[in-house]
């Protein structure tokens, strides 16, 4: 794990009297103390083990498919701890490549000496790998070269099976995504960013959700009969040459079926465009927490 010291805090001291103005601050700490933030990443069981068939004992694909990842490469960079008053507590500019199919929570960085208070603007990026990208022990040099060659930020390879059917896919995504204003549920309440406490370290996990690629909508239908579901039948059907390898080119040639899918404001006309848009939503914050997602 890398250790970092915070960068300059240009405005921090100027507004220390904010709460005296009467508009109230939710900042639970008001001393000059400091704490640490440990950033990690994890792919959950969906990426480490499998996304199963939906059933009474497990939730998953509603159309009988299951997916096992072989590889789930993701490149994190530019993690920023800041607040809505314009202060920046710390910034990690470097990028690091992870394979979240490898089991376990992986450390990204330990940031020490962060002023103990609420930091409500935490952000990060998932962006294409470059020569300067560092390599986490979960990924290999060959992985890094693959990512550089394709200008990929995210690369997934997996096997999908349904009865006797088996499809393989390996999709690289040459996209860059900004995750802003991350927030999560902590102790039953929504918390913007994170709260650093005196002399303690908080764990902040940049969780990757491997199931998002297969959603049929992100915006829930108001019709209770239409459930948000994981589907693979339409992706499998896109394998037009029937070689059991589903390529992104084949997905890009498959129109989005509006009877099953809702583009949910993502502006996707094909299965390929929809999956590519969904890939931008894999980045999460402290488990189920979310961020505002923007194209870089």
């Amino acid at each position: 794990m890398k250790h970092f010291r915070p960068i300059a805090l240009p405005i921090a001291l100027l507004i220390s009297g904010w709460s005296a103005l009467g508009c109230g601050s939710s900042d639970p700490t008001s001393s000059d103390g400091k704490g640490s933030v440990s950033f990690t990443t994890w792919g959950e069981e969906y990426i480490e083990q499998e996304i199963p068939v939906d059933g009474a004992a497990s939730a998953g694909f509603i159309d009988g498919w299951s997916v096992k990842y072989e590889k789930f490469l993701v490149n994190f960079q530019n993690i920023v701890i800041a607040n809505s008053k314009g202060e920046t507590a710390a910034q990690i500019g470097r990028s690091e490549l992870f394979n979240n199919q490898v089991p376990g929570v992986k450390p990204i960085a330990l940031l020490e000496g962060i002023p103990a208070k609420a930091w409500d603007r935490v952000s990060y990026q998932i962006a294409p790998v470059t020569e300067g990208t560092e390599l986490n022990s979960s990924a290999t040099a060959a992985d890094k070269q693959l990512m550089i060659d394709g200008k990929f930020a995210i690369y997934v390879a997996a096997n999908a099976t349904k009865g006797n059917l088996s499809k393989h896919f390996a999709w690289g995504f040459a996209i860059a995504t900004q995750y802003n204003e991350c927030h999560s549920e902590q102790d039953g309440k929504d918390e913007a960013g994170l709260v650093v406490n005196n002399n303690s370290t908080i764990d902040v996990q940049l969780t990757t959700h491997g199931d998002h690629l297969y959603y049929d909508r992100l915006q829930a239908s108001p019709d209770p009969a239409i459930k948000t579901s994981l589907r693979f039948d339409t992706l499998a059907a896109a394998d037009k040459n029937n070689d059991n390898e589903i390529t992104l080119e084949e997905l890009n040639a498959a129109p989005l079926d509006v009877k099953l899918y809702d583009p949910s404001g993502l502006g996707a006309a094909t299965q390929g465009a929809f999956v590519t848009s969904l890939v931008r939503t894999i980045g999460h914050f402290r488990g189920e927490g979310e961020c505002t997602v923007s194209k870089l």
Binding site: L218, S264, G265, L266, T281, E290, V293, S294, K295
Partner: peptide, 12 residues
């Protein structure tokens, strides 16, 4: 940095 267009997470 050049943010011009975004995709997102409408469900959230």
């Amino acid at each position: 940095l050049g943010i011009r267009e975004a995709h997102a997470h409408p469900g959230h």
